[in-house]
């Protein structure tokens, strides 16, 4: 048992636990956290694989940026929206288990039995240009320059695509301040609307505030969360 083995076994087990936790969690937020956990462990494994650049990127890009993006979207969609674990498609779970086990078993037995890998180590490669990052930079800006340039096009396309998809046309002209104040003054709701989550068990954006008499107030929710109250969702779960 050298140091690498110790680190590997601990992080490997953590990573598998994280992955399983992602699949088995009922709530999306929990899944996201499990994924972040597994990814951090993977970053540690990259260190043992003599890839410090990848390890850093893994933490910065994946756990830092991508997973945070996931959490933002979860905020929009509703932090509390939990998945029913009841399967609706007939035979889906059974077949998925069967195929998953078969695929995994075949993959692992194949890896274990047929490939005898030599551990060449990256000491030489990392040392060629004075470090791992320098070595990767050399490859990216020489041999893989074209691919690198193409990824820039891919990224800009993705950004524009995301903007186009998330964009909504304004159908009515923007209301002026005068209109807004008039609206507010001459409707029944003079006071500001309650914020979501006030006095409730969650402060998530999709949790309605509780009124003094204990009834949830739909008016406290942003528009896209109204109507689909917790009661409705619960009813949906039962029927499905």
């Amino acid at each position: 048992m050298n140091g690498e083995s110790v680190v590997f076994w601990i992080t490997a087990i953590f990573a598998v636990v994280g992955a399983l936790g992602m699949v088995l969690s009922r709530k999306a937020v929990h899944s996201a956290l499990w994924v972040a956990f597994a990814m951090v462990n993977l970053a540690v494994l990259y260190f043992t694989l003599q890839a410090p650049f990848l390890a850093t990127t893994q933490i910065v890009v994946y756990t830092g940026a991508v997973m945070m993006l996931f959490l933002f979207v979860l905020m929009i969609v509703g932090v509390d929206s939990s998945d029913s674990l009841l399967e609706t498609l007939k035979g889906q779970r059974l077949l998925a288990t069967l195929f998953g086990l078969a695929f995994g078993a075949l993959l692992l037995s194949g890896v274990a039995s047929t490939i005898a890998l030599r551990d060449n180590g990256l000491d030489v490669a990392n040392g060629d240009y004075g470090g791992n990052i320098q070595g990767i930079a050399h490859l990216v800006f020489n041999r893989y320059l074209l691919a690198f340039e193409v990824t820039s096009a891919l990224l800009i396309t993705a950004v524009i695509g995301a903007m186009v998809l998330a964009h909504r046309e304004r159908w009515a002209p923007r209301k002026t301040q005068a209109e807004l104040s008039r609206e507010r003054t001459f409707t029944s709701q003079v006071t500001p609307l309650p914020n979501p989550g006030v006095l409730a068990r969650h402060n998530a954006v999709d949790t309605p505030a509780l009124l003094p008499d204990g009834t949830p107030s739909q008016a406290s929710l942003p528009k896209q969360f109204r109507e689909t109250s917790h009661e409705d969702e619960a009813a949906k779960e039962v029927t499905s």
Binding site: F99, A102, F103, L107
Partner: peptide
């Protein structure tokens, strides 16, 4: 997934 399992097989 089934297809991938088949190919692996």
């Amino acid at each position: 997934l089934g297809g991938a399992a088949l190919i692996a097989f």
